[in-house]
């Protein structure tokens, strides 16, 4: 009897959605619709990269198909390779430094004995992360201004000529990279600090009894305890390999530094929004999306396979 019951039950399940389950599916509809409209339709809209797009005819209107012409146009532009180099160099440096520096700072913070100082430092370094690049960027531009910025005033006191950090191709990339670290290293530090505090304190006691000094404790207890989160952050940050930071660069660059500072996203913006060359801009967009997708998928695959990390 019981067996029969289970049998019909499982039979019912296999057949599909039960009535009790139906509300769950209905609840998903608003989310599915909004994502479809504002995510899947634009994704489909990328077809304009293969068309000569005329805005008056509409996004899915009767446009003329031109094959790969827009891609040829993009790669025939003289500065495309330059833009690609800038993107990868800036994004790569940010990925590496945004791993190394927060880990170092977290380890250093962990060595502080006063927990009050520890908290204060964390509070202060973490704050810039929550400001927009408009606000943080204008503070930086004020600080680095060659005429009256406080940095150049200090350099002047040391006898150096004023440096135009944001208007000189020798300094622009460095300035972009380090100001990004400045804004975001506190965030990473807090993440790593959270993983340090979750390490079992008895491990330290055991290490101390075995005669390990603080340095050895850091190497053999703290770092192994952080290994998972470090590798995870590393793997997941690989998806940003073509994200050099539009918000930051768009607000801090100028035509003088296009040579070292123009990146894929700013190029797409100028092509599409300023010059209304929608199709070539979408072609660049496709290129970026596909490369990013390969990297992100690979990184999630590695995170799932080797670190048992699953987003959903």
């Amino acid at each position: 009897m019981t067996q029969k019951n289970t049998a019909t039950h499982s039979h019912k399940r296999r057949r599909g959605i039960s009535r009790a389950e139906l509300p769950l599916h209905l609840m998903l509809i608003p989310g599915i619709v909004i994502i479809f409209i504002f995510h899947y339709i634009p994704l489909g809209g990328l077809v304009i990269a293969f068309q000569r797009f005329i805005p008056a005819k509409g996004l899915f209107g009767n446009q003329k198909w031109v094959g790969l012409q827009n891609f040829e146009y993009i790669f025939s532009m003289p500065n495309t390779m330059n833009v690609l180099t800038n993107t990868v160099v800036i994004a790569g440096a940010k990925i590496v430094l945004n791993l190394i520096i927060p880990i170092t700072v977290a380890l250093m913070l962990n060595e502080l004995q006063s927990s009050k100082l520890k908290r204060t430092v964390q509070t202060v370094i973490y704050f810039p992360h929550f400001l927009s690049w408009i606000i943080f960027g204008s503070i930086i531009m004020d600080l680095l201004s060659p005429q009256n910025g406080i940095v150049n005033k200090l350099l002047g006191a040391l006898g150096t000529d004023p440096i135009f950090f944001l208007g000189d191709n020798r300094y622009f990339r460095q300035t972009i990279i380090w100001t990004d670290i400045w804004k975001n290293f506190g965030y990473g530090t807090v993440v790593y600090m959270a993983s340090i505090t979750s390490i079992d304190p008895t491990l330290y006691e055991a290490a101390a009894i075995d005669g390990a000094n603080r340095c050895q404790q850091t190497r053999h207890v703290t770092l192994p305890g952080m290994r998972m989160i470090i590798v995870l952050m590393m793997v997941l940050s690989l998806g940003n390999v073509l994200n050099a930071g539009f918000d930051q660069i768009y607000n801090m660059y100028s035509p003088i530094v296009y040579e070292t500072g123009d990146i894929i996203d700013t190029m797409v913006y100028r092509l599409g929004m300023e010059n209304a060359k929608y199709s070539p801009a979408a072609a660049v967009g496709i290129f970026k999306s596909v490369v990013s997708m390969v990297f992100i998928s690979a990184s999630y695959y590695v995170a799932d396979r080797f670190f048992d990390y699953r987003l959903f």
Binding site: L28, F38, P42, L43, G44, L46, V268, G272, G285, S297
Partner: peptide, 21 residues
């Protein structure tokens, strides 16, 4: 369902199609 939402984290149409939409 989860793939439907997860895909949006892997790939997006980007600036231009969004603007046109």
């Amino acid at each position: 369902y989860t793939w439907y939402f997860f895909i949006t984290m892997l790939i997006s149409g980007g600036m231009i199609p969004n603007y046109l939409l």
